[in-house]
Simulated scan of single mutants.
Amino acid sequence: MLVLNKVHHIAIICSNYQKSKRFYTEILGLEVLQEVYREERNSFKLDLALNGTYIVELFSFPNPPQRSSRPEACGLRHLAFEVDDIEETRDFLIQNNIFSEIIRIDEYTGKQFFFIADPDDLPIEFYEF
């Protein structure tokens, strides 16, 4: 049987590197571990951590094709973050001009959650602990 330890990271290709870098670091608060420019690919790679744990690789590539994410497109559905206070999280995002969907209740767990979109319309979920 295959034994997996944990999710190592999630890779995201963005259309506007500076805009996405700002969103993931200044709005979501992810920590920069390493940033490199790969000249041969005309591409930045930004390694980001949450609470010291490496979780996201943010890439830039020249003219990446658009990927449909809504309505419910096939493929990776969304990136989800666990939070302690769902209303405080939503209020913070709204104060930073991030459109936030209404808070909903997970019908199976009874927990609250809501969605936003990153600069490339990737759905991001916030789920109460």
Rank of each mutant, 00 (worst) to 15 (best):
Gln34Asp: 11
Ser100Tyr: 01
Pro119Val: 07
Phe59Met: 05
Gly29Glu: 10
Gln112Thr: 04
His9Val: 14
Glu57Val: 07
Val56Glu: 01
Ser15Gln: 13
His8Phe: 12
Arg90Thr: 06
Lys45Pro: 00
Gly52Thr: 12
Ile103Asn: 00
Tyr37Arg: 04
Leu50Met: 05
Gly75Pro: 08
Ile27Cys: 02
Leu28Arg: 02
Ser69Leu: 10
Ile102Ser: 15
Tyr24Phe: 14
Leu79Met: 13
Ile98Lys: 04
Val7Asp: 03
Phe61Met: 09
Glu39Ile: 06
Arg77Asp: 14
Val7Leu: 04
Val36Trp: 01
Tyr108Arg: 09
Asp118Lys: 00
Pro71Met: 07
Ser68Tyr: 13
Gly52Glu: 05
Leu122His: 08
Asn97Tyr: 15
Ser20His: 00
Arg70Ala: 05
Glu107Thr: 12
Thr109Ile: 05
Ile105Ser: 05
Pro71Val: 10
Ile10Cys: 13
Pro123Cys: 14
Phe115His: 11
Ala11Glu: 10
Phe61Ile: 13
Cys14Asp: 01
Asp106Met: 14
Phe92Glu: 01
Cys74Leu: 06
Glu26Tyr: 06
Glu82Asn: 12
Pro71Leu: 11
Arg41Asp: 10
Glu40Pro: 03
Gly52Leu: 07
Ala49Asp: 03
Val36Met: 10
Ser69Cys: 11
Ser68His: 08
Ile27Asp: 00
Ala117Thr: 15
Tyr54Leu: 08
Gly110Thr: 08
Ile98Asp: 02
Arg38Ala: 13
Phe59Leu: 03
Phe114Asn: 01
Arg67Thr: 13
Tyr24Cys: 03
Ile105Asn: 01
Arg67Lys: 13
Leu33Pro: 00
Leu28Trp: 00
Ile102Arg: 14
Leu33Asp: 07
Asp118Phe: 07
Phe129Thr: 04
Val7Gly: 10
Ile55Trp: 01
Ile13Gln: 06
Asn97Ile: 05
Glu26Pro: 01
Pro64Leu: 09
Val56Tyr: 00
Glu31Lys: 07
Asp121His: 12
Asp91Pro: 06
Val3Gln: 09
Leu2Ser: 14
Asp121Phe: 13
Thr53Arg: 08
Glu125Gly: 04
Asp47Met: 06
Asp85Thr: 12
Phe23Ala: 00
Ala117Gly: 07
Asp120Leu: 11
